[in-house]
């Protein structure tokens, strides 16, 4: 089943043409990794999917993005962002307790029942492999957690609103290898229930977790294929060059 159907997507920020005629489809329950050098439009691509790009000054887009056949511009923006969760590059806990961080989203969507809140918080923290580490200190500030724990908290916070798609924007760029491994484990598990788009600067990470991999360069989608194929026999020589570390 096609989750995201992106056709001829162009994005401009003022005079800057950030994405050029990008077309791709994202299947349900797969992990699509997006790789490419910095300034290639990866993050812009991700932020356009949940309409976070709308916040940027002078943003303009052309083309269509459909989430399960429905144009994302026609979906209520609150509902759209509930359906499409996002985990940012740096761990960004809100200045609240661990519990309140995870509960924030569902509270904003109107959930008041204390029992239900507690159940969702516990479930989300478990899904993000964090529950055992924080279950006795849910009232503490989220800033007391380590970087890796904070990032898993952010994942739990995203899961709590029951999204269909999760966008990861270089989620491990600030983490040590062990924390990275934990986050990657979580992602692979999560794909059973969610569709994942992962932007990463780490080519090896894309190789480890991605079902398919997309290579972006200067705002263009150069190549999208099965991860194995991209890493063994890419069609485009620019893809090959980037993966071998010749530029970027």
């Amino acid at each position: 089943m096609v989750k995201f159907d992106i056709r001829d997507l162009d994005v401009w920020f003022g005079p800057v043409h950030a994405l050029k005629k990008v077309s791709m489809a994202v299947e349900a329950n797969e992990i699509v990794s997006v790789i490419g050098p910095s300034n290639s439009g990866k993050t812009t691509f991700l932020r356009t999917l949940n309409r976070l790009s709308d916040l940027t000054l002078n943003f303009k887009m052309a083309g269509t993005i459909r989430l399960e056949q429905e144009n994302i511009n026609d979906i209520d923006i609150g509902l759209l962002r509930k359906k499409i969760g996002m985990v940012f590059a740096l761990p960004l806990p809100l200045p609240l307790s661990i519990f309140d961080n995870v509960a924030y989203g569902i509270r904003m969507h109107g959930m008041k029942n204390k029992k239900a809140l507690e159940k969702t918080v516990e479930g989300s923290l478990q899904e993000a492999y964090l529950w055992d580490e924080v279950k006795d200190r849910l009232g503490e500030s989220a800033f007391k957690l380590s970087g890796g724990q904070q990032q898993r908290l952010c994942i739990a916070r995203t899961l709590a609103v029951e999204p269909e798609v999760i966008l990861f924007d270089e989620p491990c760029s600030g983490l040590d290898p062990i924390s990275t491994a934990k986050v990657e484990d979580a992602m692979v598990k999560l794909k059973e229930k969610y569709t994942i788009v992962l932007v990463t600067n780490n080519v090896k990470q894309a190789a480890r977790v991605g079902d398919r991999t997309a290579f972006f360069l200067n705002g263009e989608l150069i190549e999208l294929d099965e991860t194995d194929r991209i890493f063994t026999a890419p069609k485009d020589k620019r893809t090959d060059g980037y993966i071998r570390g010749k530029f970027g």
Binding site: N50, L52, L55, G78, L79, L80, R81, K82, G85, M86, F88, L90, L92, L94, P95, Y104, G105, M108, H109, C154, R157, T158, V161
Partner: peptide
């Protein structure tokens, strides 16, 4: 600013 982005990305409205 990142706090605002996080909140909005979870589907909260601007006023929330």
């Amino acid at each position: 600013y990142s706090f605002r982005e996080v909140s909005l990305s979870l589907g909260a409205s601007k006023w929330q």
